[in-house]
Simulated assay, not measured.
Amino acid sequence: MGELRLEELSAKTIVAANSLTLRPGQEQFVAPPSYAIADAWIDPTTSWPRVVLDGDEVVGFIRGNFDPDAEHDYFRSCVWRVHVAAESQGAGIGKFAVLALADEARKRGFTQLTAIWEPGEYGPEEFFKNVGFQVIGETAYGEKIGALAL
Score class of each variant (00 low, 15 high):
R108S: 04
Y74E: 14
M1S: 10
A36M: 12
L101D: 11
Q89L: 10
H83S: 01
H83N: 03
F66H: 02
Q112G: 09
G142F: 09
K129P: 12
R81C: 14
R63D: 10
A40P: 13
Q28G: 14
F127Y: 09
G92V: 01
L20M: 06
V51P: 08
W117E: 13
C78L: 04
K95M: 09
E121W: 04
A38M: 14
A85H: 06
G2P: 13
T45L: 13
L148M: 01
W48S: 05
T139K: 05
E143D: 11
P24F: 03
G2V: 02
Q112R: 07
P124R: 11
P32W: 05
L113C: 07
E138L: 08
K144M: 12
L9E: 11
Y141W: 14
F75L: 02
P68E: 07
R23M: 13
D56G: 07
G109S: 08
L113F: 03
F127L: 09
L20Q: 00
N18Y: 09
I136L: 05
P33W: 02
I14P: 08
Q89E: 14
I62Q: 00
A91V: 15
E87A: 13
I14N: 10
A91G: 15
I145A: 03
F96K: 04
P24M: 00
L53R: 06
D103G: 07
F61A: 05
P68Q: 04
A140H: 13
A115N: 04
R108Q: 06
S19C: 09
V131W: 00
E125F: 02
N18C: 13
P33M: 04
G123T: 02
A105Q: 05
Y141A: 15
P44E: 13
I42E: 14
T46Q: 14
I14A: 12
E87I: 08
A70H: 01
A115I: 02
L6M: 10
A100L: 12
L99T: 09
F110N: 05
D103R: 00
I93M: 10
R76F: 01
T111R: 12
Q28R: 12
N18L: 11
I145G: 06
A17W: 05
W80E: 15
Y74G: 13
G55F: 08
